[in-house]
């Protein structure tokens, strides 16, 4: 009874080719975006890079009037704020992940997990405006004077906590960043901890280990790669975060020895100055900053993804 209509089959084949090509082109488009970003940033950055050469990344000067630009102060600010953010967010994220996987009553597990994920959905500009109007005054009045009093005269690290408490500055930006990347780190670590086979943990408990000993000697070694991957994913976010930092960094193109002083980061310099930049060299210098940020963050994120992928494959093989 089957009636084979050759015309119908041919038409089907054409539709199949069209649909397949459409999906293929869309998939290739993803590669094109990344390539396009790299090429367009390189082209935009070229005038400044060829004019200043390697010294662009080694000079602190940033003077639009004399057309002298160097990226050292934004690089320093980006690295310092991200470092502070990591110092605060990694232990806290580890704690939250630990709480969610090992301690939390099952009833609260989902609500707290969702709350942490919602914190990740809050747009960065909200963190910025909150940081400027709520967090910065609190830090200025209560935390920074304490730091100056108690750590300001400490040998070796004392200079980091000297000077007046501005409220806004490198330290405040680092704290806001820490709160922002905390949910990413916590969620990734929780997922990684969940991949540890229960058998291994129970063996630890069976030997009489305390909860902490099981976590430190069984869970952590087993999920080491994933933990590092999660931390680097958070670092990638912190390095490239723009709006939250722009509000509280103070936008000063200089490197101060004190963490309490205003500074600048790569992303906040671009956000603050790009639309006001006059002159090709100024614009090109800002795009060069963008290119630097692109190279740094993409390296960090790619490494993080590679690590998380390795873990996924391994846990897939175990299961």
């Amino acid at each position: 009874m089957a009636i084979i209509d050759p015309g119908h089959a041919a038409k089907q084949l054409i539709y199949e080719r069209i649909f397949r090509s459409a999906t293929f082109i869309a998939a290739i488009f993803v590669l094109l975006i990344l390539g396009g970003v790299a090429v367009s940033l390189l082209r935009g950055a070229w005038p400044a890079l060829s004019h200043f050469g390697f010294s662009f990344v080694a000079r602190e000067i940033w003077n639009p009037v004399t057309d002298q630009f160097g990226a050292l102060a934004p690089i320093y600010g980006t690295v310092m704020t991200s470092l502070i953010a990591m110092l605060l967010a990694v232990p806290a994220g580890f704690g939250i992940a630990l709480f969610l996987t090992e301690l939390c009553p099952p009833l609260l597990k989902r609500p707290i997990g969702v709350a942490v994920e919602l914190l990740a959905a809050v747009p960065s500009i909200i963190f910025g405006i909150w940081g400027l109007f709520v967090l910065a005054p609190v830090l200025q009045r209560h935390v920074q004077p304490w730091l100056i009093r108690n750590l300001g005269d400490f040998p070796a690290i004392g200079h980091l906590f000297k000077g007046p408490p501005y409220g806004i500055g490198i330290l405040t930006a680092g704290v806001v960043l820490a709160i922002m990347v905390l949910p990413f780190i916590a969620a990734t670590m929780r997922d990684v901890f969940d991949t540890v086979p229960p058998m291994l943990k129970e063996s630890g408990y069976g030997l009489g280990a305390t909860t902490w000993e099981v976590i430190w000697n069984v869970v952590v070694p087993h999920s080491r790669v994933g933990i590092v991957g999660g931390i680097m994913l958070g670092l990638g976010r912190a390095l490239g975060e723009t709006m939250a930092v722009t509000f509280v960094i103070g936008n000063a193109h200089r490197i101060s020895s004190s963490l309490l002083a205003p500074g600048t980061t790569i992303s906040s310099a671009i956000a603050n100055e790009f639309t006001e930049a006059v002159g090709d060299l100024y614009t090109s210098s800002l795009i060069s900053l963008g290119l630097l940020l692109f190279l740094i963050t993409f390296t960090v994120i790619a490494l993080a993804q590679a690590m998380l992928r390795r873990l996924e494959r391994r846990s897939g093989a175990v299961a």
Binding site: V30, I33, L34, V37, L41, L233, G236, R237, L239, G240, E241, T242, S267, I270, A271, G290, L293, F294, T297, F298, I301
Partner: peptide, 8 residues
């Protein structure tokens, strides 16, 4: 791309 900085 999913976690790339949006300013880029």
């Amino acid at each position: 791309l999913l976690s790339a900085p949006s300013i880029i």
